[in-house]
Every structure is written in structure tokens, then in C-alpha cells.
């Protein structure tokens, strides 16, 4: 006790009384290994950054010269178009397919299940090549009575351009994944919410739009953002159809000048920048849909 007596702040206690619990100083635990781990990580990081700055192989000058180059900018626009259109069409498809898969109608359920099964099974690159070669299977496409006479027809290759084939492939591929993301969101909402809405006589469509979907969005958004980033990078696959998107374009350039690494770096940094932009958008969208939730 006498050792601690110097920590006493009041003289109200007799010298022999033990100090009150609130007079004891809490000493946080020491974490020596944390400091060692931090040091190790910092050394590795410094080495990496040093390499980035000093290794002439990165050719930062070439990188800077091409980063805002006109053809790269145009290709970037194509990548953005494919991503945006693919996401919009994909999620529209998903919003139709998910309720189908949850519906009481066994035919709709089976069709939706089969669609998702097929389009998740076929690799995107294989599917893209199929769509690009549609003209080989069907020379002309016509509108008319099923199995009966046709009204008008167009040549397949006129209707489905390379860009059209790419968009079609991305959208179909994307809707299968979007359908599962939307379905997971709907399933995440407590069944009793729908029951409460039904007990209040709220019309069916309004139940979905006003009660279920806003709550489902909380579960949908993180996965949808994930899928969107995935789609952004998947657009690089359409280079097989010789469409001038970002990855195709840098290949064209390094095919001409042989500067492979700095040009791959151009594409890489743009993908990173776009993903960062999407992450910021994700943050604000998630915040908007967390109304009424503590977290």
C-alpha cells in the first residue's frame, strides 16, 4: 500500500486506506510484435516503390506520353460504353429473372433457372465468339408468324455488328449474375415484411417497389458493385472481336512500337482509376439505402 500512496489525490482517506478503484491507472497492453510487423511491411513497401521509380523497364516517360493519348481516350470511352450499357441491360434482365425464379409459376421458375444455368456455364469469351459468328448459323433473321410466313428480314451480319455482338454477350452474361444478386437481395428481406404489407392491403407492385426492393438494396448493392467492377474488367475480353476498347487499343499500340510494359501499365492504371470512381459511387449509394439502419 505504501508504494501506491504517491498516487493518492485526496487527503480525505487515511494513509493506510487502499486507493479507490477509480484512482488506479490503466496501462494499455504492449504489442511489440505489431511494431516488428509494421517495420517489415514498410521495408517491403519501400523496396517496391523504389523499384517502380528506378527500374527503367517501366518507361514512365512512354507511359505519360500515352496515358492521355487520343486513341487511348477513344478506347477508354468504348470501355465505358460497354460497361455502362452492359450493366444497365444486365441488371434490367436480372430484375426480370430474379422474381421469375422466385415466382409460384413452375414454367417461369424453370426458364429462369435454365437461363442462369446456361449463361453462367458458358465462358464469356466463348459466348462472344458465338454471337460474332451468328451469321454462320442464321444467314438472315426475319420477323413473322412462328413456323409460318415472314414479314421482313435482314442479313444477320448487318443486324449484329461486332459491337452489337459484344454488347449482346456482355448483357446476357451479366443478367445471369445480376439475377442471382437481385434474388439474394429479395431473399434477405424478412418474410414478415411482405406479410405486413399484404395485411395492409398495399398493392402487389407497390409492395415490391416501396417495401421489398429498398430493403433488398442493402444486400444487393455491395454485390452489384462487385459485379460492376468485374464487368468493367470483363470488357477487356471483347478484344477478341477486334473492338477498339482499352485493352485492344494498347495491344495495337505496343504491337506497333514494342513498348509492352508501359502500355500495359496505361491500361492497368485506367482500370484502377475507374474502379476507384465506382467505389466512391458505391459508398454514397450504400449510404443512401441505409436510411433507418444504425450501421
Amino acid at each position: 500500500m505504501s508504494l501506491l500512496s504517491s498516487a493518492r489525490r485526496t487527503s480525505a482517506h487515511p494513509p493506510t486506506a487502499p486507493p479507490l478503484p477509480d484512482e488506479l491507472v490503466v496501462v494499455p497492453a504492449r504489442h511489440p510484435w505489431r511494431w516488428i510487423a509494421v517495420a517489415a511491411v514498410l521495408v517491403l513497401l519501400a523496396q517496391f516503390l523504389h523499384g517502380l521509380a528506378t527500374n527503367p523497364g517501366w518507361e514512365w516517360g512512354t507511359f505519360a506520353g500515352y496515358f492521355f493519348e487520343k486513341s487511348v481516350m477513344e478506347a477508354l470511352l468504348v470501355t465505358l460504353e460497354l460497361t455502362f450499357a452492359g450493366a444497365v441491360l444486365g441488371f434490367l434482365g436480372g430484375i426480370v429473372l430474379a422474381p421469375m425464379r422466385l415466382s409460384g409459376n413452375p414454367v417461369l421458375r424453370a426458364v429462369s433457372w435454365a437461363y442462369i444455368w446456361v449463361f453462367r456455364s458458358v465462358p464469356l469469351i466463348v459466348q462472344l465468339l458465338f454471337w460474332a459468328n451468328l451469321g454462320y448459323l442464321y444467314d438472315r433473321l426475319q420477323v413473322g408468324v412462328p413456323f409460318g410466313p415472314g414479314f421482313f428480314s435482314v442479313g444477320t451480319s448487318q443486324l449484329v455488328s461486332a459491337f452489337g455482338a459484344a454488347l449482346l454477350g456482355l448483357a446476357l452474361h451479366e443478367s445471369a449474375y445480376a439475377a442471382e444478386i437481385v434474388r439474394a437481395g429479395i431473399l434477405s428481406v424478412d418474410q414478415r415484411q411482405r406479410e405486413a404489407a399484404a395485411a395492409l392491403g398495399i398493392p402487389r407492385l407497390r409492395q415490391f417497389r416501396r417495401i421489398l426492393l429498398p430493403q433488398a438494396m442493402r444486400a444487393i448493392l455491395p454485390n452489384a458493385a462487385n459485379e460492376l467492377v468485374n464487368l468493367l474488367k470483363s470488357t477487356s475480353v471483347v478484344y477478341v472481336l477486334a473492338i477498339g476498347e482499352l485493352f485492344y487499343q494498347v495491344q495495337v499500340i505496343y504491337g506497333r512500337n514494342g513498348r509492352v510494359v508501359p502500355l500495359l501499365l496505361v491500361a492497368t492504371v485506367w482500370y484502377v482509376v475507374l474502379t476507384a470512381v465506382l467505389s466512391v459511387l458505391q459508398h454514397y449509394t450504400e449510404r443512401r439505402f441505409s436510411r433507418g439502419y444504425a450501421r
Binding site: Q193, A196, A199, I211, G292
Partner: peptide, 26 residues
Amino acid sequence: GERQVLRQRTGIGFVFQSFNLFPHLT
């Protein structure tokens, strides 16, 4: 049909054991 049942329910209030308020609405 569901539409008619929903209309009938507007005349019958229901209070649940677990409240079932819509958490995203004030």
C-alpha cells in the same frame, strides 16, 4: 384474385406480435 383480397384487407387492421414496421420508413 389477389387484388380483391388486398382491397378486403384494407378494412381489417392487423397488429403483429413482432410489430413488423418497415425499417427504412419513418
